[in-house]
């Protein structure tokens, strides 16, 4: 018999009393949290909570109007001395960047296999969009796809992320249920909460363990939310 057959035979031989699904209890739990009650509050409050939390996780947050985020990005690029900025040319934000003529833009338009070393050694920063964010924990939902691949938010030392304030939800549970994750997950979805870090040496916190050393969030809002 194969290992698989043996394992299933042993598992099925055990007596197992059925238990009710926890679905309702989970839904009730998240409905009972004060955080969820805030869903009816102005989205601005959720965005503000998100910004506060992710700042506490060591991210740099800039709140900018949707219409002028490219200008802010230019400022960030200049301030950080970013010479090479990886971007996704087929995305809406990628097109806006190209149109605005941001300096040092490098398109991610080839499979990684041909330029792995270059990505690891010669790219200063990458800019990506996000699918939303979570107020409770200060977390970004990053949803890589063929146009905006997964390594963009991992390999370059600086990750710049665009978060639309209207996409902030109270909890991860809200994100998964409202955005119907189960109906169609990408090959690699990510929650990102701050730059890469470790406390493996004597419980001392250090940033930039393997992934980005810096996370810069451009939180895009309406003009009046400023």
């Amino acid at each position: 018999m194969s290992a698989r057959e043996n394992i299933f035979r042993k598992l099925r031989a055990a007596t197992t009393a059925p238990l009710p699904s926890p679905d309702a209890a989970i839904a009730a739990h998240y409905a009972s949290l004060p955080r969820t009650a805030q869903a009816d509050l102005a989205r601005v409050q959720l965005a503000k909570d998100f910004a506060e939390k992710i700042t506490a996780w060591h991210a740099e947050v800039h709140i900018v109007p949707r219409s002028t985020w490219v200008d802010k990005l230019k400022e960030v690029v200049a301030a950080k001395g970013i010479a090479s900025l990886l971007y996704a040319p087929a995305t809406t934000h990628g097109k806006a960047l190209a149109a605005a003529g941001v300096a040092g833009l490098k398109p991610y338009d080839q499979p990684i296999d041909g330029w792995k070393r270059e990505l690891f050694e010669n790219v200063d920063a990458a800019i990506t969009g996000t699918r939303g964010a979570i107020a409770e924990t200060g977390t970004m939902i990053v949803w890589p796809d063929a146009d905006e691949p997964r390594l963009m938010s991992l390999v370059p030392p600086i990750h710049i992320a665009l978060v639309d304030a209207d996409t902030v939800v109270p909890t991860l549970y809200d994100a998964i249920t409202q955005q119907k994750w189960s109906a169609g997950l990408p090959t690699n979805a990510l929650l990102i909460t701050g730059p890469s870090k470790t406390a493996d040496i004597q419980q001392t916190l250090a940033y930039g363990a393997h992934g980005p050393k810096e996370l810069i969030v451009l939180l895009l809002t309406g003009e009046d939310a400023q």
């Binding site: 924990t137 977390t139 691949p149 997964r150 997950l185 090959t187 690699n188 979805a189 990102i192 909460t193």
Partner: peptide, 19 residues
């Protein structure tokens, strides 16, 4: 929460550039 929550649902698909 941790910095990363990595949700993997398969290897690189045709047309994807990494993974």
């Amino acid at each position: 929460i941790t910095t990363y929550f990595n949700v993997i649902t398969g290897p690189r698909k045709p047309g994807e550039k990494d993974g």
